[in-house]
Amino acid sequence: MLSDNPDSAQSLWGINNDSLEYNPNSNRTRFGIFMTGLVSLFTAIAIIPLFVVLSYLIINGIEHISFNSFFELPPQALTQDPGGFGNALIGTLIMVGIGLALSVPIGIMAGIYLSEFSHPNIAYWLRFATNVLSGVPSIIVGTFAYGVLVVTFKSYSAWAGGFALAILMLPIIVRTTDEALQLISQDIRQASVGVGANDYQTVLQIVIPSAVPAIVTGVTLAVARAAGETAPLIYTAGFNQFWPDLKLQALSSQPIASLSVLIYQFGISPYENQQQLAWAASFILMILVMLSNIVARIATTKRNF
């Protein structure tokens, strides 16, 4: 076709024989160079906030943190007392612990069902629901936990906060377990059935042990997310100036402090000693979150991030 009418081909494509060679001055080359420059600039812009936020955290965090920060109560306003975030650290650990205790068994069992026993159509809709649940804003999850537990107990409590965190962790654990089990090759399941194991023996003794590293990664990422969450805790766990009462009954009847709510309340506080503690607490929270992220990603080589 082109050879029939070379003139029209030329006018159509705007090319001549020379254009088969690389021409550094042609518009398309210049456009390419410009766009490459633009996207590398964009990449730099995307990375900058990470370093800016981290460096401010490190500078302000180290300046205001001390050994005592870990063991003291938050400072009162209008004092020179630097105080500490001891109670908030314990509160975060308790609530993340409650969240784990609720979400890990349910999440792993649900992941097992999705990957091992379910009909593909049912699995499709359950996975869909899991993904939608993970997209529910965390403040709405807090509202839900308020309606379920705070209304029932008539008080902010560690249980309500832990319940909210569990709902946030659940989809992450279901999804990573499901994906991890699907990566296990079909051969070992067949081998297990071949030597006489039944379904639960195959799953519990053969499939799950091979998938443990990936499941641990999922759980670690879920912990990292839950530890940093603030919105679902503001009106489920509330805040407390004092040490948490660890008696079982107190966990459902008293507000409990957490690192993230402490950062929020003291960050918007007008008093300097409280603001400084917010920086120190952010620094520790950030170390917790970053460490678990990095560990989770290094631990599994199978996943490509």
């Binding site: 990470l50 800016v52 936020v53 401010y56 955290l57 302000n60 990292a224 530890a227 940093g228 969450e229 603030t230 919105a231 993230s260 950062i263 929020y264 960050g267 918007i268 603001q275 917010a278 920086w279 952010s282 929270l285 950030m286 979150v289 970053m290 992220n293």
Partner: peptide
């Protein structure tokens, strides 16, 4: 991975 409350704190003071 940076928690949203940390972005908030950074936003207020920086």
């Amino acid at each position: 991975a940076i928690p949203s409350v940390v972005f908030g704190l950074w936003g207020i003071f920086v």
